[in-house]
Simulated assay, not measured.
Amino acid sequence: MYSLAFKLFLFLSLFQIFVSARTLTQEPNQFQLLKYHKGALLSGKISVNLIWYGEFKPSQRAIISDFITSLTPSSKTLNQPSVATWWKTTEKYYKLAASDKNPLSLTLGKQIIDDTYTLGKSLTDQHIRKLASKGDQHDAVNVVLTSADVAVTGFGMSRCGTHGHARGFGKRGTKFAYIWVGNSETQCPGQCAWPFHAPVYGPQSPPLVAPNNDVGLDGMVINLASLLAGTATNPFGNGYYQGPQNAPLEAASACPGVYGKGAYPGYAGDLLVDTTTGGSFNAYGENGRKFLLPALYDPTTSGCSTMV
């Protein structure tokens, strides 16, 4: 589902830089409106279950957990721009779809840890779906996160992550949404951890300092954010997207490489910088976190919406 965006990167990388379906900066009105294909969007109270495969430090798991928690507005997060404000852009898709279902509300659900590599260190898509099925299969998105020493088919060569859906074990016809994101710190940081690592192709601007001081995990946040936006607005392949159904451009992948105003090939845009750590970011989160999140396509303006 995510391969076209990466192919787009490989083509555009002759001129610029890629980030898991993110590379080219665009001015407003250069994109056509992502077409709504009349399918279901995620709605109601949805738990985001995290399935950790491989070795992750508790501090690394906390980065992802805090990002998920930050998606819901909280009185604890008073600083702006916030992760919750970034996520609000997805609400515009629901309004345009005239959905009569309950608004989407995401919460952090279960955390399942498999640090013994029960399926080995070389995984296929079938393995990813098997791992995803360990989470809840109703009112949930199951996120499989693989550690830096785990190889996944196509990882770094054709994708940095993917989202899809699978048949549930319960009532006939039920299906659940899932996401996979890999830690690219050692395998393919030039493809999947930009702008925190020098790109493989394109302009060689100095890499930015990761806001949580972890190139692999901060890169995973970017890719997870992109895929989560795509999952909410196109969970079962018939929601909002542009292009072929099996390789669509979606809410975040339609704005590749854009993180702040003034972005251009090889430059992520004008970002905030932590005066203490030097980390670049564009959104505040829970527990004092700072994150760099991709621009989202705004269907009401036909442009890329940035936080800063």
Rank of each mutant, 00 (worst) to 15 (best):
D139C: 09
G120E: 09
P58F: 01
A295W: 00
T174H: 10
A40W: 00
S65W: 00
L123Y: 01
R289M: 15
T25G: 12
K290T: 15
V181Y: 03
T85C: 01
A84Y: 04
G202V: 06
L104R: 13
Q126I: 11
S13M: 08
V181I: 14
T277W: 04
L12T: 10
K57D: 14
Y178M: 05
S105E: 04
L24W: 07
G279N: 09
G219K: 04
F15L: 15
G154L: 08
I17P: 07
I112D: 03
G154I: 05
D214I: 08
W86Q: 10
G239A: 12
G303E: 02
A151T: 14
S305P: 10
L217R: 06
F56N: 07
W87M: 13
A210H: 01
N213C: 02
T186D: 06
T153I: 06
Q137V: 07
K57R: 10
N79Q: 14
K110P: 09
T276A: 14
T77A: 06
T107V: 11
Y178V: 05
S280G: 11
K130R: 15
Q242L: 15
A251V: 14
R159F: 00
C188P: 00
I46V: 15
P248T: 07
S59H: 01
F176G: 12
V308C: 06
L119A: 12
G135F: 03
H37F: 07
P207M: 03
D270N: 14
V215W: 00
A254S: 15
D115Y: 00
Q32R: 13
L145H: 03
T301C: 10
R159C: 02
Y241W: 11
T276L: 11
D139A: 13
S226N: 06
S302V: 08
S253R: 02
W180N: 06
T116K: 14
F67C: 10
G239W: 05
I17T: 15
V143E: 03
Q80M: 05
L208G: 07
A21N: 11
A140S: 13
S158M: 11
